[in-house]
Simulated scan of single mutants.
Amino acid sequence: MALLVAGVVTGLGLFLTGVPGAAVPEQTTTVSVSEGETLADLAARFAPGSDTGAVVDKIKELNSLEDAVLVPGLPLTVPVATGVAEGGR
């Protein structure tokens, strides 16, 4: 039973964070942060299928962010996957 639970937790973790080792897109776009939006939200929206943690790290690097506190309206440069529409929606 413990192995089953561990497998499910691991599978969900992989599903929610994207494919481990998937490349962070090189193309970027500038977006405006919405109320309540997180770096992980932006990573999932603009680089689906990529490792969310790696995309978050790249967003921090591109914007010289030391922490993940975002202010609504803040313009951020984010990696964007090919085929993701401007605005990511």
Rank of each mutant, 00 (worst) to 15 (best):
E35K: 15
E61T: 06
P75C: 10
R45H: 06
A22D: 09
E26R: 08
L65Q: 03
G36H: 08
G87A: 13
A68M: 01
V31G: 07
L4I: 14
L70S: 11
V8Q: 00
P48K: 12
Q27G: 04
S50Q: 06
L65N: 03
G88P: 09
L39H: 04
T77I: 13
T82V: 00
P25Q: 10
G13F: 05
L65M: 02
T52M: 00
R45K: 05
V56M: 04
P75A: 08
G87R: 07
P20S: 15
L42A: 12
G73R: 11
V80A: 03
A22H: 12
G13P: 02
V69G: 06
R45V: 03
G7I: 04
D67P: 01
S64I: 02
P72E: 04
D57I: 01
V80E: 08
G36D: 11
V24F: 04
T17Q: 03
E86S: 12
P20E: 11
S34L: 14
E61D: 11
V69C: 03
G18F: 03
A23P: 15
V31H: 00
A85I: 13
D51R: 09
T28I: 01
L42I: 15
A6H: 11
S32M: 14
K60A: 14
A85M: 12
P79D: 07
G7L: 10
G49P: 05
P75M: 10
T10L: 11
V56A: 07
P20R: 15
L65A: 05
N63F: 00
L3W: 13
T28Q: 02
S32F: 01
A6N: 09
V33A: 13
V55R: 06
L16E: 08
K58S: 08
V69H: 04
V56L: 01
T38A: 00
L70T: 08
S34V: 13
V31W: 01
G7H: 06
K58Q: 11
A47K: 13
V8S: 08
V19N: 08
A68F: 00
V55L: 06
A44R: 15
T28G: 05
G21H: 07
L39R: 10
G49I: 03
M1R: 14
E26L: 03
G83T: 10
T77C: 05
A47E: 09
G36T: 08
I59C: 10
G18R: 00
T29W: 01
P20Y: 14
G7Q: 00
V80L: 09
A40E: 06
V19P: 06
G11P: 07
A81D: 09
S50N: 04
E35Q: 15
G13Q: 04
E66Y: 04
S34P: 10
P48V: 11
D57P: 02
R89G: 12
D57Q: 07
P48F: 10
